[in-house]
Design a protein around this nucleic acid. Structure first.
Lengths: 236, 236
DNA sequence: GATCACATGACAAGTCCCGTCATGTGATCA
DNA sequence: TGATCACATGACGGGACTTGTCATGTGATC
């Protein structure tokens, strides 16, 4: 499961009423809409954040949304692209689909159909994420199936126990996790072994993460336990 | 990269001329079409093989293709589904999309548009595969990024060296691989160590695969080397 | 039957992982 | 400031796994 953050949908549309209807459809399917009204503004927004779906009009101030697709892909974007356009003949659809759009909807559109197609695209998007059970915290990414951790492009080499630890921490991100919780859920022990096994292992994990991230990722809550918060600034 | 096997597209359509046009479009986009003319026949075909895309008509002898989607999903199918139907009003499209279709095309369709939409679906299908660099041989699946091997639903536990071996074999599937090739590419040795290290390791890998697959996967080419062919019948 | 190619069982060495222990460091309190 | 406690870190040893080697059994060919 992708960490519980609503997907973002970028809408690039110069007609305010149409943009409004598209934003409403995005909200209706549980996504956060971000609206831009020009070709350049749309490209800039796409470069600045992760979007699950990008909806482009064709005749925009500054360019044709279909031409933006190659630019998005060249920049590494994996967003699914829906073109929404008054250019609705089959030839227009074919051109858009062949230039890399994932769906093409002609204007004027039925809002219910737009919603249904957005849901279908988001289902598709979820397939990739579900296939790897990804948890993302800024530049820190945990792939549960592949059992890998990356910070930015850098792979963090973890032992099996360290991976179990960070998984438990990630599932309780931002909350204080006690040593007894870790003993129960990571070591499957329901008593105190009277050793500092938890401290030692958490220390190992911390040093590996800090070496790559260049900042503290696991913080000590003195007298309580630890807090996993990769996006907090400052020392442990 | 998915191993160079053409994707299969299942077409469930009772009108022969339409089925023919759809099969032609599938061929045109580089896929192998499999055609069925009844609802039950379509479901049976879907259960019997892996399809990248399944195209269902709605008014089929025996049922409505839209109703098949839930059955496909319950059976674990990850095929993308396109509904192609004379029922082409927005309400029909919405119903199909909300019942899980990935795309919906009204009849009569423009063959070029059908092709473009098939390509878009296959691109999406490739997204999932690319994310894990999957090599598939029938029921045997190698995920290069996760470094896992599954036969059907069963995980095959391989050591690092065994995984390197099967990867090299898979990249040369169906061809005879010599011991010297394996020494060079898997062991990075460019001389004969005068031991039977290759034989021993290949033997270990073979026994693990055969234990799960219930059939020989790696075959001996006497005096030459080995052939990786998981889909061949018969002993080694 | 002899010889060669290949398969398999067993062993030893190296590496990694994990837990324990001892001790150093930092925080808190009287 | 010193004592005490909480936590961090370095080091060690044992167990598990991986890998390569060797010896020998088995099958194929002549």
């Amino acid at each position: 499961m992708t960490h519980a953050i609503a997907p973002c949908i970028l809408i690039v549309e110069d007609d305010p009423d149409t943009a409004e209807a598209m934003a409403q459809a995005a909200c209706d399917v549980g996504a956060d809409p971000v609206v831009r009204c020009s070709y350049a503004g749309g490209l800039a927004a796409a470069a600045g954040a992760e979007f699950a779906v990008i909806m482009f009009d064709r005749m925009l101030p500054g360019g044709d949304g279909v031409d933006a697709i190659a630019k998005l892909r060249a920049a590494g974007s994996t967003a699914l692209v829906m073109v929404v356009s008054a250019l609705g003949r089959a030839a227009n659809k074919i051109e858009g689909l062949e230039k890399g759009a994932d769906d093409y909807l002609a204007k004027p559109f039925d809002p219910d159909e737009l919603r249904a197609r957005l849901r279908a695209l988001l289902r598709r998007k979820a397939m990739v994420a579900l296939d790897n059970d990804v948890m993302v915290f800024g530049d820190l990414e945990i792939r549960l199936k592949a059992r890998t951790v990356h910070i930015g492009q850098a792979h963090v080499a973890l032992s099996p126990k360290e991976f179990e630890l960070i998984t438990y921490f990630a599932r309780n991100a931002g909350e204080t996790v006690t040593r007894m919780q870790l003993l129960e859920h990571v070591w499957n022990l329901h008593f105190d072994p009277q050793t500092n096994v938890v401290d030692v292992h958490v220390g190992r994990l911390r040093r590996k993460l800090e070496a790559v991230a260049g900042r503290a990722v696991i913080h000590t809550a003195r007298g309580q336990g630890y807090v996993f918060d990769p996006q907090r600034e400052g020392a442990a």
